[in-house]
């Protein structure tokens, strides 16, 4: 554990909690892509199956449980409790275009051809592109609420901090996970355009160009 990894995890947690609180407080999920949130729930579910097979630390286990619980709560709020406010007409990204190729790739390129490992690999690949329905939705409507941009900022910051964490671990621990690093780089790149707009538009409800 290093400071970049810890702040990365906390950024990730901040993003998840910001989104959950926004929906809860405003009683609305307008502008939020339910499809991205479903994909994130699928990411956490397939990645954290190792909760049943290996114990790493109390921190590790509790964070996993919190991420899973929050992502399911978010999906519940969008598709059940506040379904009336869900902007399904603008959430038109075809998720099968992500899930199918990512599924195929996780069978072909993985560390070990075993069920748990393939599911872990699937989750890593899927996470790197899971935000696309959300970005697609914003590009369709042309704008995002301030709080939604904060959510995206913390999501992007989390992966950027993980990249620094991996550089750190490579130099100081000799740790290098090619699959995680490549997917992490892809994921971070997807946020670059957004980061630029977030900072130049004064971190407020930006009108984001398509």
């Amino acid at each position: 554990m290093n400071i970049f990894r810890l702040t990365g995890d906390l950024s990730h947690l901040a993003a998840i909690v910001i989104l959950l609180l926004k929906i809860w407080k405003t009683r609305s999920c307008a502008g939020i892509s339910g499809k991205s949130q479903l994909l994130f729930a699928l990411v956490f579910t397939t990645r954290y199956l190792d909760l049943f097979t290996s114990f790493i630390s109390l921190y590790n286990t509790s964070m996993k449980l919190i991420y899973i619980a929050c992502s399911y709560a978010t999906v519940y709020l969008i598709y059940m409790k506040f379904k009336a406010t869900y902007d399904g007409n603008h959430d038109t990204f075809r998720v099968e275009f992500l899930v199918v190729p990512v599924g195929g790739l996780s069978f072909l390129v993985n560390h070990d051809f075993s069920p748990l490992e393939i599911l872990w690999t699937f989750s890593i690949y899927l996470e790197s592109v899971a935000i696309l329905p959300q970005l697609f939705m914003i590009s369709k409507t042309g704008e995002a609420e301030t709080i939604t941009t904060h959510y995206l900022f913390f999501q992007g910051l989390y992966r950027a901090l993980y990249l620094v964490n991996w550089i750190w671990r490579f130099y100081f621990e000799g740790f290098f996970d090619l699959i995680a690093v490549v997917a992490g780089v892809v994921q971070t790149i997807l946020y670059c355009d957004f980061f630029y707009l977030y900072i130049t538009k004064g971190m407020s409800g930006c009108a984001l160009p398509a």
């Binding site: 990894r5 990645r47 097979t53 590790n60 070990d112 490992e117 993980y162």
Partner: peptide, 10 residues
């Protein structure tokens, strides 16, 4: 091979 790999990151 086929040992369960441990992933210590989240």
């Amino acid at each position: 091979k086929n040992a369960i790999l441990t992933h210590d990151e989240l």
